[in-house]
Amino acid sequence: MKSAPTQFDVKQSQGEGRVQVTRSFTLQSAVQNSGAVAYVFLLPSLVFLAVFTLWPIVSVIWSSFRTRQGREQVFVALQNYERLFTDPIIQQVLKNTLFYVTAGVGFAVIGGLLLALLLNQGLRNIGFFRFPFLATIALPMVSVASIWLFLYSPRVGLFNEILAGLGLPLSNWLNGRELALPALFVVYLWKQLGYFALFYLAALQALPVDVLEAAKLDGITLWQQLRFIIWPLVSPTTYFVSTISVLGALQQIDHVFVLTTGGPNNATNMSLFYVYEQGFKYFNIGTASAMTVILLAVLMTMAILQFVYLERRVHYD
């Protein structure tokens, strides 16, 4: 709006004898002055935004097309991507990632909604019931992982104690190829389910009371109420929870570090952990960059879809 601020405007507001001028044309000069001041206000954020969010995006795309040869970086077109997709373990990594993403969405939506319904039944002292689910949201993933490492421990862990008590054969949990990934996923779910439930809880509390009351009078079953009234009404929340659970699942790494470091035999190696391993353990910067670019593409697509969806809702609701 209005003309852009010029050098002259800045000088004018700074010049001593001009204070009077500024005062008498308050509104107009406010608009003019704000231009230069706005850039000053934005500068600290913009500098760090540029160096630590925008530049890294450009630089990682750039380095995904290059590789080190001797002392120089040379352009290698798509070779890094070729190497990435011919890495013998990449299929395992993608499979594990896909498991986390799909199971993550499923449990976030169904488990989150179920937990929210249970927390929303108007019990007294609901704060007391809510606390454990809130607590895990706030706990560091590293501590959560330490807790579960202890639970899964073959010799002194709670789970094997229970199995032994029931006279069942003991399990290796995190050291077995089949159970390691699901065991890891349980830890992720234990930490995050309360977070997803929070959004459903807010949605449930915003439901129109009269609709629910009318439904009750009509004598429909609990299932019908859930399926035909609640589920459609909370669908925006379902969309939102799905999106953030995909974004969250793609970034899971802390508990992988503590519990399995990607093992046994890459059974729990996934998206971000793979980037870490390639970049910081094997120093395959090209491959790590290529994987980062793929993750970036997925995340940005998801985010854009989310914005488009929100935009639509704002316009047509």
């Binding site: 160096v51 970049g279 970036l296």
Partner: peptide
């Protein structure tokens, strides 16, 4: 600013480490 909302910092560990 919006770009930062789309791209979580954890994804950019590699280039940010280099910086």
């Amino acid at each position: 600013f919006l770009t930062q909302l789309m791209v979580p910092a954890s994804i950019l560990i590699l280039p940010n480490y280099q910086t």
